[in-house]
């Protein structure tokens, strides 16, 4: 990875600051489809709020009863959407990041539904995390990424990154739409 590109990637990230660094991930605000998303700008330093959500004990125990062994372990993953809004969500281990985003109503496309035939679930992985994803993009994924706007050296397709146990605190960004030329 060239230093220039890496700097550019980091600069893109600066626009979305303040970020939750992997080491700061204990400061989380639960967010699920039941709760209005939290803006990182305002909530990062706000007192930790407990909000009733799917991840509350009541729901968890109910779900455990209903879905016996299918309950999977989750890790906290942070998505930054096109507006710069931050979402911290429970990502099931073994699920891909595109599905995780959809399950939590995060505005990420997925036109080909994870069949490696488009680039609409393009995510920019935080440079600190890129090498810890446990997989490298295959040739077909690189071919698709080459069509994506806002391509960076740490770009991945959400559908190709499977959540692993070490993802606790992972930060990924959905690149903003490119403005129109006139």
């Amino acid at each position: 990875m060239s230093t220039g590109l890496l700097t550019a990637t980091l600069r893109n990230y600066m626009r979305c600051l303040p970020l939750l660094k992997p080491s700061h991930c204990s400061r989380v605000v639960h967010c699920s489809s039941l709760v209005a998303p939290t803006r990182s700008r305002t909530t990062l330093f706000a007192p930790f709020k407990t909000v009733p959500s799917e991840s509350s004990n009541h729901f968890q125990s109910m779900k455990r009863c209903l879905s016996d062994n299918s309950e999977k372990k989750t890790v906290k993953v942070q998505f930054i959407d096109r507006d710069g809004d931050s979402f911290i969500v429970d990502a099931k281990i073994g699920e891909n990041l595109m599905k995780v985003a959809h399950q939590h109503d995060i505005d990420l496309e997925g036109a080909c539904e994870g069949t490696l035939s488009c680039c609409t679930c393009h995510l920019v992985v935080h440079p600190d995390w890129y090498d810890q994803l446990g997989s490298e993009p295959c040739e077909d994924e690189l071919d698709m990424l080459d069509m994506a706007y806002g391509l960076t050296d740490t770009s991945r397709l959400g559908c190709q990154v499977v959540v692993r146990e070490n993802f606790e605190g992972l930060v990924v960004r959905i690149p903003p739409y490119e403005p129109q030329y006139t």
Binding site: E109, A111, C118, C119, T120, H122, M147, A148, Y149, Y177, E178, P179, Q180
Partner: peptide, 11 residues
């Protein structure tokens, strides 16, 4: 490609 049209539509 399709992704371009999605961007265009958003704009």
């Amino acid at each position: 490609v399709l992704a371009t049209t999605i961007t265009d539509s958003a704009n």
